[in-house]
Each structure stands twice: as C-alpha cells, then as structure tokens.
C-alpha cells in the first residue's frame, strides 16, 4: 500500500499528467461542463432505464381516441396526450431512447470507418491519401440532407437499419478528414519512424502506435459527431423522412407541430420533445467542447 502511494508520487513528479487526469482537471475547473457531463449521462441513463423498465411501449402506443388532446396533469397523463390519445410522457421516453440508440449506432459505424480510413490516409500519404481525399472533398460539397432524403424515399422495405446505413453513408466523411489531418502530423514523429526502422509492421504501427496517441482528439470527435447524429436523425424524423411511423422518435413528436393548431394551441404535444432535443444537444456539445479544450494544451482552463 505504502509503496503504491510512493510510486504514484514519483509518477506525478516525473511524468506529465495522463490524458484522463487532464480531462478531469478541465471538468473540475469548468463547473458548467461538469454539470453538463453528469446531467447528460444521468439524463440518458434514466431515459434508457425508464424506456426498458418503466414504460410499456404497447400500452403507450395504443390509440385511445376518447383521451384525445388530454391536457397535462389530467386523467393521469403527466404531460397530456396527442391527437390519438397516446401518452406524451411515454412517447417522449420511447422516442428519446430510439433517437439516442440510433445516433449511437450511427456514431459507432461512422467512427470506425472514419478513424480507419483517416489513419490509413494519414499514415501512408501518397496516392492512397490523394485518391481518398478527392472522394472526401466531393462528399463535402454534396447537398447531403437532400440526397439522404431522396435515398430514404427510394429505398424499398425501409426500416430502422436502412435509415442508419443511409445516414452513415454520408457521415463518416467529417471524421475521416479530421483523423487524417491529425494522423498526417503525428505520423511524421520520431517514435513512428523509430518503429518503422525496427521493422514493425505497418498495421501494428498504425493501430497500436498511432491510434492511442490520437485518442484525445478521437474522443472529442466521437462526442461531437454523436451530437450531430442526434440532430440529423431527429431532423429527418421531423421532416417525415426518418424513423418509420411505428417507431416514434423525438423528431416525430416535434413534427406534430407542423399542424398550426397543435403548434399554437396544444403546445404540450411538441414542446417537451423540442426542449429535450435542445437539452441533449446543448449537454453533449458542451461536454464535447470541454473535452476539446482539454485535448489542446493552449486552450486548457485547468
């Protein structure tokens, strides 16, 4: 035990603080970021918990026309009911769960593709880099939102997975571009060259040498792209090109507001979902910004 603490002290004195310590210091310094971090984690956890254990999806989605537009707080409807008499609170929880899980899946898929391609491009450079960069530049100029919508409308047998794949098809580009630029400068460092001279295989250098050293930037990128994906999915669902009607999303709930009577007179149908999207986006993005600051020594507060 004693030697352990000794060891730790020596570490602190001789080596710079590790990535995680720096991040923690940054959050300790910025109280709002700490609040955003715990608020977002707690919020997402309780939404997932409620969606799986407290809310009966079948019961919530059953149409009860008599209870149509029940106002909040009446007949046991905490947040009121929509035009089919379905509980808003229940739909909110299920919608949020769907939106979060879909955004999460898209983030995982696009991050894997983006990080892999980015590192390969940055490490090898040359014609691989040039060719892929052309493709990425082209993707960046596409009217992405429109093309996603067109894809959604022409894909036969449209479902949740099709939506995830269509969005992923266009979302890996940003990550790949960012990772490539970081890998390009990191790949010219001495330790990479030393590895090469020692005859380490390229694959090992890239994913055991380079990748861990990019981790702080990757965490930032993944966090921010998660927020972006929540925005895209809810936006598409809002326009009616997102989740199929059987799977409610936060965007579907907000889309009821395209009916002016609901927008002005029955605010409880759409406003909670809109505010929940807002809170999620602010929370995740704020955490992302704090992480970004801690990844850059010049911007650190702590």
């Amino acid at each position: 035990m004693k030697t352990d603490t000794m060891q730790e002290q020596v570490d602190v004195e001789t080596s710079p603080p590790t990535g995680l310590q720096v991040v923690w210091r940054e959050f300790k310094k910025d109280k709002l970021a700490m609040f955003a971090l715990f608020g977002t984690i707690l919020g997402i956890a309780s939404i997932l918990f409620a969606a799986y254990f407290l809310i009966d999806e079948k019961e919530t989605m059953t149409i009860k026309i008599i209870e149509r537009f029940t106002e909040p707080g009446m007949n046991g409807y905490v947040l009121g009911a929509d035009e089919a008499g379905r509980d808003i609170l229940g739909q909110l929880v299920i919608g949020a769960k769907n939106s979060i899980l879909i955004a999460f899946t898209i983030t995982i898929i696009t991050s894997i593709i983006g990080i892999f391609l980015g590192i390969v491009m940055g490490y090898y450079g040359g014609w691989i880099d040039n060719a892929l960069m052309r493709i990425i530049d082209f993707f960046m100029t596409l009217p992405t939102l429109m093309i996603i919508i067109v894809f959604v409308s022409i894909v036969p047998e449209y479902g949740v997975w099709e939506l995830i794949l269509i969005i992923s098809l266009f979302q890996w580009v940003g990550t790949a571009r960012l990772v490539r630029s970081k890998a390009l400068s990191e790949g010219r460092r001495d330790y990479i060259n030393a590895s090469k001279t020692m005859g380490t295989r390229d694959g090992v250098i890239m994913f055991k040498g380079l990748l861990p050293n990019l981790s702080s930037i990757l965490i930032v990128e993944v966090t921010l792209s998660f927020a972006g994906n929540v925005g895209i999915e809810t936006g598409l669902s809002f326009l009616g090109f997102g989740l199929p009607p059987s799977t409610p999303s936060l965007g579907t709930l907000v889309s009821y507001a395209t009916n002016p009577q609901i927008l002005s007179g029955r605010w409880w149908v759409w406003l909670p979902a809109a505010l929940l999207i807002l809170m999620l986006m602010l929370g995740i993005n704020y955490v992302g910004q704090a992480l970004r600051r801690s990844a850059d020594a010049q911007q650190r507060l702590g």
Partner: peptide, 16 residues
C-alpha cells in the same frame, strides 16, 4: 448555443 441548437427546434420555438 447557436452552434448546438438544431434548426428545426429553434425555428418552431421562434414561430411559437
């Protein structure tokens, strides 16, 4: 905030 907020959420809130 203006960076984080989605277009359609702000649009609806402004319209409301």
């Amino acid at each position: 905030i203006s960076y984080a907020i989605p277009t359609f959420v702000l649009g609806l809130i402004f319209l409301f």
